[in-house]
Design a protein around this nucleic acid. Structure first.
Lengths: 346, 346
DNA sequence: CCCCCAGTTGACAACGTTGTCTAGAGGCTA
DNA sequence: TAGCCTCTAGACAACGTTGTCAACTGGGGG
C-alpha cells in the first residue's frame, strides 16, 4: 500500500456542538438544548431559528456527553455464544425488538464459548455503562458480575443458569423435553437408544442427559454406558460416536441427538446406513421437514426465550425489585417421521 | 448463598469514580488514571495501593466519559435487515470478529427492510459517535448520511449499493452468479426457465434478473413474461407464482429461485408436483445437501463479505483516503442434483 | 403606579475522564 | 555546593451535554 495521506484531509472532523448552533442562531446554549430535546418554553420563532442553524451546520447531538450527564445509556448488552448459530438469530432479534420498543439500542458480542472472552466482553459492556445485560453464559462462575449488579446493572441469563450468583434466568425445559423425546422413542418400540450430546460442562447437555436417563428408567430400561456419548459436537466426533453405537454387537435402534449440530451430522450418518434408525433431535431447524424422512424434533422457542429475558430485564430496569426468578420455557415435540420409525429387527 | 437482598439497597448510581479511588488510595486523581490505563510513571508501590483501592471499591472506568474526552468510541455500528435471517448470521459474526481484532465493540440493529427505520437507526448510531458503520441498505437514498461522512464517520455498504451517495460497497456478483445458474440449466437442456425473485426495488433482485435475461439471450432463448415473477418472498406468493408457471399450457421445465427464502418454498412446491422440475437457488443454505434431490445453488460467501467490509472500514479509520471502492465477492455454483435434472417431456 | 406572575432565556456548575503543565524529590556531574 | 536532569505526582482545564437557578420581559390586577 502507498503511504497514507497525512494531515490534510478531514481527519476526525470537528463536529458542530450545541455551542456552535447557539452562536449561529444567536441564542444561548441551553435554548439549543431545549429545542433539540423538545422541551417546552421556547417561542416558535426562536425554535425556528435554532432549527435552521441545526440543519445548516448538520448538527447531531453527542450522546456520549448526554449519557455522561444523565447516567443512563438507553442501551443494553447481549452476550451470546455465536451469532452464526441459527439458534441465536431469532433470540437476538427478539431481544432487539424488545429493546427497541423501550427506546434502547443493543450492543452485542460473541463469547465463542470461551469463559474468559465472555468476562472480557461483559466488563467492556459494563464500562460502557449499558443499563442491562442479557447473557448466554459460556463460563460457570459469574461472581465477577457482583459489583456490577450491585451498582445497578440489571442482568438476565438465558439458556443456561448463572454460575455462583443469584440472578434472573430464562431456560428451556431441557429435562422435560429430553424425557419426552426419549419416551416417544420408547413408545415406538425402542429399547436400545443412544444419546449423543454436548460437553458435560454445559448445563443444557447435563439436563438433557438427565431427561434421557429418567425416561429410560421410567420405562424400566437399562442404559449401557456405550450408548451415551458426550463431548464436542464436531462432525467427526459425532460420526465416530454414532458409528460405535450402531456397529456394536447389540446396536442401538434409535438415536437421540442432544442439539441441532449433532442432529444434522446424525442425519448424514444415518443416510449412509443400510438399515433404518430412528432419530429425534433436540432443537428444531429450518428444513427439518424437507429431509426424508422428515426429522422429529424437540423444538425450543428461541424467540420466546429472548423476548422473555428482555422483558424481564426491562422490568428490572423499571425498578421491579423481587427475588431472582427462574423462568422455564416449554419445549414442544414435533413428530415428523424420523422419530416414529420402528426398531429394525436384523 | 441463595440469599441476596442487601438491605443497603443498590438503587442505581453511586458507582465509584477515579476520584473515590484516589481518595481511598491517598493519591491524586491523575495517578489513578495512569494506573487504570497502564501508563508509565507510577512507582510499583503507588500502583499497588491504587490497585487495592480499585478492587476494594469495585471500580470500573466509565467509558462514556472517556469517549467524550477522547473523541473516538472504539465501536462500530452494523445495520442489517434481519438478524434472524440465516444469511446475516455469518456476516454479522465476521464483522464482529474483525471489530474485535481492532479492539472495537459492535452495536447493531435491524432495519426490517424499512428505509425509515434504517435511517433512524443509523442516526442513532451516529449520535453515539460510532467510529464507523457497516450498512446493509434497506432504502435507496442515503444522502442523509452526507453530514456524518463529512464529519468522519467511515461507512461501508454491504450486499446492496448505497443510494445517491458515493461510498465503499461490498457486493456479491449477483449478475454473474445468476447468469451462471441459468446457463447451467440451459446446458442441461432447458429452454423454458422460470425466475421467481424478490421485489424489483431491491438491487440484488434486479441484478439477478439481469443475469437471468442475459443467460437466456446468450443462448438465443426467448423469455415469456409469464416466466418472470418478482415480488414479495412470502410463501403464498411464491407458491402462486410457481404454480402459474408450472400449470401453463407450455410449462417451464426449470426454476431459478432468486434467494434462499424463495428456494425453500420452491422445494416444498416441487415436492408436490407429479413431474420432476429442475431447480437452482441463489444463496446456499444449511442442509441443502440433505434434501432429495439435493439442491443446486449459487452460493454467496456471507462471511467473506462481512470480513471484507469490516476490513475496508478499518482501513478507512486508519486514515486510508482513496476514492470509494466497489468490491465484488464471487459466487460459486454448487451442483448437487436439483439443477442437473433434465427437462421433463410430457 | 406598583407588584406579582407566567413565560422565556441564558449563565453556570456538574457528569468522570484524559492531556498538559508544573512542582518536588532525588541523583548525578562538574 | 551549585546546576541539571529524570522520575513521580498532582492541579487544572477541557470534552459536550443537561439540571438549576436567576434574570429578564410584558401583561394584568390591586
Amino acid at each position: 500500500m502507498t503511504d497514507t495521506a497525512r494531515g490534510t484531509s478531514h481527519r476526525y472532523g470537528t463536529r458542530p456542538t450545541m455551542k456552535d448552533v447557539a452562536a449561529r442562531a444567536g441564542v444561548g446554549l441551553k435554548t439549543v438544548s431545549r429545542v433539540v430535546n423538545g422541551e417546552p418554553g421556547v417561542t416558535p420563532d426562536t425554535e425556528r431559528r435554532v432549527q435552521e442553524a441545526i440543519t445548516a451546520l448538520g448538527f447531531r447531538r453527542n450522546d456520549s456527553a448526554r449519557i455522561l450527564r444523565k447516567g443512563r445509556t438507553a442501551s443494553i448488552g447481549l452476550v451470546l455464544e455465536d451469532l452464526a448459530d441459527p439458534f441465536y438469530g431469532p433470540l437476538s432479534r427478539a431481544v432487539e425488538e424488545v429493546a427497541r420498543s423501550h427506546g434502547a439500542l443493543l450492543i452485542n458480542g460473541s463469547s465463542a464459548e470461551d469463559p474468559a472472552r465472555e468476562q472480557e466482553l461483559v466488563l467492556a459492556l459494563c464500562a460502557r455503562r449499558v443499563d442491562g445485560l442479557v447473557v448466554i453464559p459460556a463460563g460457570d462462575d459469574h461472581r465477577y458480575l457482583e459489583p456490577e449488579i450491585a451498582a445497578g446493572v440489571a442482568t438476565v441469563f438465558v439458556d443456561r443458569p448463572a454460575g455462583r450468583i443469584d440472578a434472573d434466568v430464562v431456560l428451556s425445559d431441557n429435562f422435560g423435553g429430553a424425557r419426552d423425546a426419549v419416551a416417544h422413542l420408547i413408545a415406538h418400540g425402542h429399547r436400545r437408544i443412544g444419546f449423543i450430546g454436548d460437553q458435560p460442562r454445559i448445563h443444557t447437555a447435563r439436563e438433557r442427559l438427565r431427561g434421557y436417563r429418567t425416561a429410560m428408567a421410567a420405562a424400566g430400561l437399562p442404559v449401557d454406558d456405550s450408548w451415551v456419548s458426550l463431548g464436542s459436537t464436531a462432525p467427526e466426533r459425532v460420526r465416530a460416536a454414532a458409528a460405535a453405537m450402531l456397529d456394536a454387537p447389540e446396536p442401538v435402534t434409535a438415536l437421540f441427538a442432544g442439539n441441532n449440530r449433532v442432529t444434522v451430522t446424525a442425519v448424514r450418518v444415518l443416510r449412509e446406513r443400510p438399515h433404518p434408525v430412528a432419530l429425534v433431535g433436540f432443537d428444531d431447524f429450518e428444513l427439518a421437514d424437507l429431509v426424508r424422512p422428515a426429522i422429529t424434533v424437540v423444538a425450543q422457542d428461541a424467540a420466546h426465550m429472548g423476548r422473555t429475558a428482555a422483558v424481564q430485564l426491562f422490568r428490572r430496569l423499571d425498578g421491579v425489585d423481587e427475588t431472582p426468578r427462574r423462568m422455564e420455557i416449554p419445549t414442544r415435540l414435533i413428530p415428523r417421521g424420523s422419530g416414529e420409525i420402528r426398531p429394525y429387527e436384523g
